[in-house]
Structures are given as structure tokens and as C-alpha cells.
Computed example of a mutant assay.
Amino acid sequence: MRTERVLAAAGLLLALGLVGATLVAAGVLPPAFLGSPPADDDYDRTAVVVSDENGTELGRVEARIADTRQKRYTGLSNTSSLPEDEGMLFVHDDPQSLTYVMRGMDFGIDIVFVAENGTVTGIEHAPEPPEGEDGNDYRYTGEGKYVLEVNYDWTTRHGVTVGDRVHAEGVGLERSE
């Protein structure tokens, strides 16, 4: 009898946890429902290098790696500014159609969509949302397994275009020679 109650309680907790995670992922509940947002030092980091078809380096940033649902949801929304040589690299489990928003953003960014093989598939220039407007209303879509977020117009200043290559150690974007 006691074992049945323990199993029933465990099953209920698991079901509630799954429902909560689903509601957070769908944007119905804030991520705080599952715990506090990740702190800056909770992220691994990697150097991200973008090069052209000839292998010439176009630009480089030190990026925080957002490789969990919570880190991807939080993104740069808890960041007040982004130094020119920094960014965030989002790592998804599989290649897919992706939509990014400017939730809680105080500055503009470039959103670079990257295929599983490291090829840039799309670039969106996302300016800072106007004061008093919800960044969730601004949606940027693309295809890929990875998304690199850098300062607004970084890709323009560095000459990055669709078809260029992104390399980063430790996340599946290692440079192949």
C-alpha cells in the first residue's frame, strides 16, 4: 500500500513537472517557474570564428553557449549591453525552423542562423525594440541548428553574408581542414 502511494506521488510530480516545462517552453509561464534564470557565470564559453568560402577570417567573438532550454529561453534578455567582441551561441538539438524574439532586450543585435555543417543560412538585423514595446512582438525566423547573436550590424561591419562559415570548438562546429 505504501509503495503504491509513493509511486503515485512520484508519477504525479513527474507529470506536473512535464506540464510546467511544456508551458515554459511554449511561453505561457516564465522560466522562473522552473527556477531562476542562469547567471552569467553559468555559461560555458567558446571562441566563434566566421570565415568566408576561402577560409579568410571575417570576424571573431567570445560567445556564451546557450545549450539548455532555460539558457536558450533567457538568451541575452538579462544583459544590459554586449561588448563588440562578445556574443551568444545558441545550440539546438536538431536542425529546424527557428523563431527568435527580442524578449527584454535593451540593445539591437544581429541574429545569424547557422546550419548543422556551419554554413550561415540567414542573417536578421534586429534593432532594439522601441521603448515601452514588448520585444516578444518582434519575431525573426530562419533555419539551422545554431544561432549566433552579436551586436547590431556586426555582420555588416565584418562583411558576413549567407554562405559564410561559422566555427566554434566544443559544440559541433569544429573547423575541418
Rank of each mutant, 00 (worst) to 15 (best):
E131M: 09
Y140L: 01
R139L: 10
N151D: 00
V120G: 13
L148A: 06
M105A: 12
L89S: 03
Y146A: 10
G108N: 03
D94T: 15
S80C: 00
T79R: 09
R72C: 08
I109P: 01
T79P: 00
D94P: 02
V150D: 00
F113R: 10
T99M: 07
T119C: 11
Q96G: 15
V114K: 05
S77A: 05
A115E: 15
H158C: 04
N78T: 14
G118R: 05
T99Q: 05
T155Y: 03
V150P: 00
T79N: 06
Y73P: 00
E149I: 14
I123G: 01
Y152N: 01
Y100A: 07
V120A: 11
L98S: 09
G122T: 06
V147K: 01
T119P: 00
G75V: 12
P127H: 14
Q96P: 13
R103D: 12
I111N: 03
E116T: 06
K71Y: 12
E124P: 02
P127N: 13
R69Y: 05
R72M: 05
V120C: 10
P129D: 07
P127T: 12
P127C: 12
G132M: 04
T121F: 10
G132A: 12
E143K: 06
R157V: 13
D137A: 12
G122W: 08
I109M: 04
R139V: 07
G75C: 06
M88K: 01
D134R: 03
V101A: 06
E86T: 15
Y140W: 01
T121C: 08
L82M: 08
Q96M: 11
V150C: 04
R103Y: 07
T79Q: 07
N136G: 09
E124N: 13
G142K: 03
S81Q: 13
Y146F: 15
Q96V: 02
V147L: 06
L76H: 02
H92E: 13
G108M: 09
E143S: 15
M105P: 01
A115S: 15
L76T: 06
E86C: 11
G142F: 09
H125A: 10
V150E: 01
N136H: 05
S77H: 03
D110P: 09
G104D: 09
L82E: 07
E131H: 10
I123Q: 02
V112K: 10
L82W: 10
R69T: 04
G75N: 07
V147Y: 01
R103E: 12
T74N: 02
N78C: 06
T79D: 04
G104V: 04
M102T: 01
V120F: 04
N78A: 10
G87R: 11
P83D: 15
E149A: 08
R157F: 04
F90V: 10
G122P: 04
T141E: 10
R69H: 06
I111Q: 03
P127A: 14
E131P: 11
V112C: 04
G144A: 13
Y73W: 06
H92F: 15
T119L: 13
P95V: 14
P130K: 07
R157E: 13
M88R: 04
D106N: 15
N136Q: 12
R139P: 00
K145Y: 00
E128Q: 14
E124S: 11
R72L: 06
